[in-house]
Deep mutational scan, measured.
Amino acid sequence: GLTEEQKQEIREAFDLFDTDGSGTIDAKELKVAMRALGFEPKKEEIKKMISEIDKDGSGTIDFEEFLTMMTA
């Protein structure tokens, strides 16, 4: 499992990506986040990433899903 410290770091990354503070990361926010990390993702790639992570089919990534992605 994760230490509380690791969870906190992932939470901070999540909050950075969640620019509108909605508690979820949408495609637009993910794209901005990827760019910040030096990637140039295409729209299809973003969609694919979200569909792989987005277990509940909401079209957005919540913290639990993000946590799973970061620790996979």
Rank of each mutant, 00 (worst) to 15 (best):
E4S: 10
F39K: 04
K43E: 15
F14M: 01
A36S: 12
I53C: 11
G21P: 01
K43Y: 15
E65Y: 08
T68Q: 15
D20F: 04
D62Q: 05
M49I: 14
D62S: 15
G38H: 02
A36C: 14
G38E: 03
L2F: 10
K42N: 15
A33E: 00
S22G: 04
T3D: 05
A36I: 12
S58W: 06
E52F: 14
G1H: 14
Q6Y: 12
F39E: 03
K7R: 11
A36Q: 12
G57Q: 10
R35H: 09
F14C: 03
F66G: 00
S22Q: 02
D18K: 02
M69R: 04
I61N: 00
L30V: 08
R11M: 03
D62E: 07
G59T: 06
G57F: 12
D56E: 07
L16M: 13
I10S: 02
D26W: 05
G23I: 01
D26M: 06
L37H: 05
A13R: 06
G38T: 01
A13H: 06
F39Y: 13
D15A: 09
I61K: 00
T60C: 08
E29N: 13
T24V: 07
L16A: 09
E65T: 15
A36H: 14
M69L: 12
G38I: 01
L30R: 00
G57N: 09
K31T: 14
Q6P: 01
I53D: 02
I46C: 11
K31D: 15
A72Q: 09
K48D: 06
L67I: 07
S58K: 12
K7S: 05
S51W: 05
L16G: 04
L16N: 09
K43D: 15
K47T: 13
D56F: 08
G21N: 07
D56N: 11
A13V: 14
A36Y: 14
E9N: 12
E4M: 08
I61G: 00
K55L: 11
E29V: 07
F17L: 11
Q8Y: 09
G1Y: 07
I25Q: 00
E12S: 09
D26L: 09
G1N: 08
M70K: 01
A27F: 13
A72R: 12
D62P: 03
D18T: 03
E44Q: 09
L16T: 08
T71I: 10
E9A: 13
E12V: 10
L30S: 01
I10H: 04
S58T: 12
R35F: 02
L67D: 00
L30Y: 01
E45V: 14
K47N: 11
M34D: 01
K47G: 05
Q8L: 09
E29A: 13
A36M: 13
P41S: 07
Q8R: 13
R35D: 09
M49C: 13
I53A: 12
I61H: 00
E9W: 14
G57A: 07
T19S: 11
G1L: 10
D26E: 09
F14Q: 01
E4T: 10
Q6F: 13
F17R: 02
I53N: 06
Q6M: 11
F39G: 03
K48T: 05
P41C: 15
D54E: 08
L37F: 04
A33V: 15
I61E: 00
I53W: 15
K47Q: 14
A27P: 06
V32E: 15
M70A: 04
T19C: 11
F14R: 00
D56A: 06
A72N: 08
D20R: 04
L2I: 07
E29W: 11
K31F: 14
V32G: 15
I50S: 02
R35K: 14
E40W: 09
G1S: 12
K48H: 11
D18C: 06
K31G: 11
I25V: 03
M69F: 15
T60Y: 08
F14G: 00
M49G: 02
E9S: 13
M49S: 04
G59W: 05
T3Q: 03
K55E: 05
D20H: 05
Q8A: 11
Q6S: 07
D54M: 12
G59N: 05
F66L: 04
T71F: 07
L37V: 06
A72C: 14
F17C: 10
G1A: 09
G23T: 03
D26K: 09
L16Y: 14
R11C: 05
S58R: 08
T68E: 12
A72T: 09
E4I: 09
F66H: 00
I46G: 02
D54I: 10
K55W: 11
K7T: 11
A33T: 03
E12R: 13
L2E: 03
E40G: 06
D54R: 06
A72S: 11
T24C: 09
D62V: 04
T3H: 04
I46Y: 05
M34N: 00
E52I: 14
T68S: 12
L67N: 01
E45F: 13
D18V: 03
E45N: 08
A33Y: 03
K31P: 05
I25F: 01
T68C: 11
Q8H: 12
S58D: 14
R11I: 03
G21K: 12
A13N: 03
T24N: 05
M34L: 13
S51Y: 04
V32A: 15
T3F: 03
E65C: 11
L30W: 03
F17A: 15
A72H: 14
K55F: 07
S51D: 13
E64I: 09
E4R: 11
E9T: 14
F63K: 01
D20V: 04
F63C: 01
K48R: 12
L37K: 03
R11N: 01
E44I: 06
D26S: 12
K43M: 15
E45H: 11
P41V: 15
E64F: 10
S51A: 12
E4C: 12
T60S: 08
I10P: 01
K7L: 13
P41W: 10
R11D: 01
F39C: 14
G23L: 02
D56Y: 09
K42H: 12
F66A: 00
T60A: 08
R11T: 01
A27V: 15
M70E: 02
D54G: 10
K28V: 08
F63M: 02
M34A: 02
T71L: 09
K42T: 15
